[in-house]
Each structure stands twice: as C-alpha cells, then as structure tokens.
C-alpha cells in the first residue's frame, strides 16, 4: 500500500459521512429517549400531552418511598446475581468438557450455540410449556408430591422457572466466549502441568480457570447488565410479572406502569433510577474486579 494507514480515506469527510447514519440511529433511539426519560421524571406528564406540571424531585421522592419499587428492585438484583452466576457457571462446564476433546465435543460445540438464535419471547413461551405443572417435564413430580411444582400459583416456583429460562438463553454466548478462552491456552501449559503430576481436575482449577479469568470476568459483566433488561421478554411471555408480583422485575414494572398504566412520569422516574444503577454497577465492576485480573499472559 502506497499511503499510510491513517490516510485510508481520501476525503476526510467520508468517514464522518459513513458513521453518520449509525450515530444518528444511536442518538434518535438511545440518547433522545434517555434524555426524555430524565426530563419527564421531573414532571407530571399527561399521556396525551397538553399540560405537564413541573414537580422537581417529587417523582423521585415518591418512587424511592414506594415499597413496591424496592421490592421490584430487590427481585431484580436477586435475579441478576443468581441468574447471571448460573448463566456463567453452567456453560463453563460444557466449555471445559468441549475443550478436552471428549467424545461428542465437536457436535456439542455446534448444538450448544443454537439457542442463541431463539428470541427471548419464544424461549419464554417454550419454557412456560416445558415447566407446565400438568404436561411439562416436572409434572411427574406433582404426581408423587401433589402441588410441589406450581409455577402458576407459587411465586417462588415462578421465579425459578424464570431463572431457568434465562440461564438457558445465556448458555450459547457465554459458552462461545469461555470456550474461545480455553482454546487459546497453549497446549504446552497443560503438558507442563501434567508432567508435574497435576491431574485433569487439578489442571482445571490451577491452570485453565486462572488463565481464562479475562473471559470469566467479561461474561458476568455482560450478563449483569444483560439480565436487567433481557428478562423483560421472559417475564412478559411467562408470568406477566404475576403471582403477587413475585416475578415483577423492575424492567417489567416500568413497562406496565408506563405503557399499560399510562403513568409516564412514574415510568420515566424508574427508568432514570434504573439507568443510574446500571451505570454505577458497570463502573463498579470494572473498577473493583478489573484491577485484580491480569490480562497479560
């Protein structure tokens, strides 16, 4: 190539032009709504417009003193911690197995990626059927112990069902990331450890896991933020936040308040709070966890 790489574009405006459509999309569909949400959170907004009343921090005061908001927030955090941990740990097992060239690891690598192609709402519908207390896979349990599995009646069961569906939908992505990390480890490390007398299990904990820490760190970061928003499709199709609100996560509550209840101000305020929470959470993850992980090899 005759020209240096930084002069890849002959016209200096061409790159700007190429980026503009995407930047516009991000501004229109991300920054503008966010700004709108923060703006509305200081007003009492009528659904059809015409007459919004500035109320200062009153919306925040109300939301923050509303036990339902804290309940939903607590459930969101529980869902985030349990769901995300499992969504990383569960695929870690097949990833380690697939990396070890066990029988069927080749087809498994393919099959395990398939769920990535299934939309959250479809997963919800399918899992609602799988966990149906009368015809689903757990229905035999109900024949032995009547009433033990009732996701339509018992809030805890419904929550478990939600987490199971979430973990399942998280398997492919995390599996790919973790497997890629494992595959990038030099074979010589395994061989050296084996020569030192470390068995297969020992090597997992002393060699493989420490070396794929960047991936193990990355997946929960993505999972944590993902679980807060992606749970929406599952809740909407499986439980509608129901059973005494036991599956009403914050993201779903915002939707119901804003779109079904026409409470634009309340929904906007909760959106603003949730957004600040996610930003702080991600910041904290990078600040606290990131420092301890050695990216150098």
């Amino acid at each position: 190539m005759s020209s240096p790489p930084q002069a890849l574009f002959a016209n200096r405006w061409l790159p700007v032009l190429l980026v503009t459509p995407l930047a516009l999309l991000i501004v229109i569909f991300f920054y503008v709504p966010i700004f709108q949400a923060f703006y509305w959170s200081f007003f009492l907004e009528r659904p059809f417009g015409g007459g919004s009343i500035f109320v200062g921090w009153a919306n925040f005061a109300r939301v923050l003193s509303d036990p339902q908001f804290w309940e939903a927030g607590k459930r969101t955090v529980i869902f985030m911690v349990i769901g995300s941990s499992l969504a990383v740990l569960v695929p870690l097992i097949p990833a380690v197995a697939a990396d070890r060239q066990v029988r069927l690891s080749q087809p498994a690598r393919n099959v395990l990626v398939w769920p990535k192609g299934v939309a959250g709402a479809s997963i919800g519908v399918i899992f609602a059927f799988i966990f149906n207390p009368f015809v689903g896979i757990l229905s035999p349990l109900n024949q032995w112990f009547p009433g033990i599995w009732a996701p339509g009646i018992d809030g805890t069961d419904a929550f478990i069902m939600l987490i199971a569906a979430h973990v399942w939908s998280g398997i492919p992505f995390n599996f790919v990331i973790l497997l890629a990390g494992l595959q990038s480890l030099p074979r010589t490390m395994h061989q050296a450890a084996a020569m030192d007398g470390a068995g297969a299990r020992r090597r997992i904990f002393d060699v493989q896991l420490p070396l794929i820490m960047p991936q193990v760190f990355l997946t929960p970061v993505l999972e944590f933020t993902e679980s807060i928003t992606s749970a929406f499709a599952l809740v909407d199709t499986m439980t509608k936040g129901g059973l005494g609100g036991s599956t009403n996560l914050l993201v779903y509550k915002i939707y119901v308040d804003g779109f079904n209840g026409y409470d634009l101000s309340g929904a906007a305020t909760q959106t603003a709070i949730l957004m600040v929470f996610v930003v702080l959470l991600t910041g904290a993850q990078f600040a606290l966890l990131g420092r301890r992980i050695n990216y150098e090899r």
Binding site: I153, G242, G244, G245, V256, N260, G261, Y262, D263
Partner: peptide, 20 residues
C-alpha cells in the same frame, strides 16, 4: 390510573390466595 389499579388488585389478592 385504573389499569394500574387492576394490576395492584390482582397482585394483592394473589398474595391472599397464596396464604401470604
């Protein structure tokens, strides 16, 4: 906000049916 109240009613009575 009656649509929201319907949700509230369902939530609270479901808790009652669960014995909470």
């Amino acid at each position: 906000f009656y649509v929201q109240f319907r949700e509230v009613f369902m939530e609270e009575t479901q808790k009652a049916r669960n014995g909470e």
